[in-house]
C-alpha cells in the first residue's frame, strides 16, 4: 500500500471503500507492521501532547525565548478583557496557535507538525474547531489521521523544511494539513478535504523563511497564528463548495518549484528578508555578542 499523492489516496478510498481517516490508518499500520488500533493509540498520545502544549504555552512567560515573551499570555488576557475582535472560534485559533509556537520557542514539549517551527498551526486551528463543535476524542483522532494524510502526500511531492522550500513548506503545509482536517471534522467529502488543503497552501505560496537572528521566533510565532486562521478560512470556502481549481498535488509541485526558485538568502539562512532589515541585523548582532563562543 502506498500513499504518494492526493490522487492516489482518493483512489485508495474509493477502491477499498475506506474513508480518508481509515485509509491513512491502514497505510500506517501496513507500513509500520502494526494494527490500526495501535496507530490510533499513538495518535491519541500525540493529541495529548498537543493539548498539553496549548495549556502550558498559555501560561509560559517566555523566559527562555530571546525576542518574544509570553505571547500566549498576552493574547489571552487581551481577549478576556475584550480588546480583540472575533468570535470564539477565531479567538481560540489565534490563542492556541500563539501559545504552542511560543512554548516551542521557549524549549517546551511540542509535536512537530510537520516541523517544530510550524507546530502551532494544526493544534491552533483544529483544537479551536473541536471546541466549537464539541467533537469527541475519536472524531478528533480521525481528523488528525486525515491531517497526517495531507502531510504525507505533501512530503512525498515537495519539501517540508524552511531551508529547502521556505516557510510556504512549513507554515503553508501545516495550514493545508489543518484545513483538510477541519473539513473532515465538519463531515465534508474527501474531495473537499483536498480542496481546502489546496486553498490553504495557495494562500502561502511564495512565503519565504527569513527568521530574525537564526531564532524560531520572529516572524515564526505570529505566523503560526495567521496560518491557523487561514486554515479555517480555506476550510470554510471548501465546505461552501468553492473548489481549489488547481488540484492539491499540482499545488504542492508548484510550491516545490517556487522553493527551488527562492534564493538561499530566503531559505532559513537569516541572510535576507526580515532578518536582513536594519532592526533584524541589530538584534542578530546583539545576540551574537552576548553568546560568542
Amino acid at each position: 500500500m502506498e500513499i504518494t499523492s492526493a490522487t492516489q489516496l482518493l483512489q485508495l478510498c474509493s477502491e477499498r471503500d475506506f474513508d480518508l481517516a481509515q485509509a491513512v490508518a491502514e497505510y500506517e499500520a501496513f507500513r509500520a507492521n502494526t494494527t490500526c488500533d495501535a496507530v490510533r493509540e499513538s495518535m491519541r498520545d500525540t493529541l495529548g501532547v498537543m493539548r498539553a502544549s496549548v495549556e502550558s504555552g498559555r501560561e509560559d512567560q517566555g523566559e527562555r525565548a530571546h525576542l518574544i515573551k509570553g505571547y500566549g499570555r498576552i493574547y489571552s488576557s487581551a481577549k478576556d478583557q475584550g480588546h480583540t475582535l472575533g468570535g470564539s472560534l477565531f479567538q481560540h485559533a489565534i490563542l492556541y496557535a500563539l501559545s504552542v509556537a511560543q512554548y516551542n520557542a521557549g524549549l517546551g514539549r511540542i509535536v512537530a507538525c510537520p516541523t517544530a517551527g510550524a507546530c502551532g498551526v494544526v493544534p491552533g486551528a483544529l483544537l479551536a474547531v473541536a471546541d466549537e463543535l464539541q467533537s469527541s476524542e475519536e472524531e478528533l483522532i480521525d481528523a488528525l489521521l486525515v491531517m497526517g494524510g495531507v502531510g504525507i502526500v505533501s512530503a512525498a511531492q515537495g519539501p517540508i523544511s524552511g531551508a529547502e522550500g521556505g516557510c510556504q513548506s512549513e507554515c503553508g503545509v501545516a495550514s493545508a494539513m489543518a484545513a483538510g482536517a477541519i473539513v473532515h471534522l465538519m463531515g465534508g467529502s474527501p474531495q473537499q478535504v483536498f480542496d481546502a488543503a489546496s486553498l490553504a497552501l495557495q494562500s502561502h505560496l511564495g512565503l519565504v523563511c527569513d527568521p530574525l537572528a537564526s531564532l524560531v521566533e520572529v516572524p515564526c510565532v505570529t505566523r503560526n497564528a495567521t496560518s491557523a486562521t487561514t486554515a479555517i478560512v480555506a476550510a470554510n470556502m471548501a465546505l461552501a463548495g468553492i473548489p481549489g481549481v488547481i488540484p492539491y498535488d499540482e499545488t504542492v509541485v508548484a510550491m516545490r518549484k517556487i522553493g527551488k526558485a527562492m534564493p538561499e538568502s530566503l531559505r532559513e539562512t537569516s541572510q535576507g528578508g526580515l532578518a536582513a532589515t536594519p532592526t533584524g541585523l541589530r538584534l542578530y548582532g546583539e545576540m551574537r555578542e552576548k553568546y560568542r563562543l
Binding site: 502506498e2 500506517e28 516551542n104 514539549r109 509535536v111 488528525l144 489521521l145 504525507i152 512525498a156 524560531v216
Partner: peptide, 19 residues
C-alpha cells in the same frame, strides 16, 4: 523511495525550538 511514516510528519514529539 521508502514509505513516509505518519509520525515522521505528525511528529516527532520533542522539546523545541528546532528539530
Amino acid at each position: 523511495m521508502a514509505r513516509i511514516g505518519l509520525f515522521d510528519i505528525v511528529g516527532p514529539i520533542m522539546v523545541g525550538p528546532s528539530s
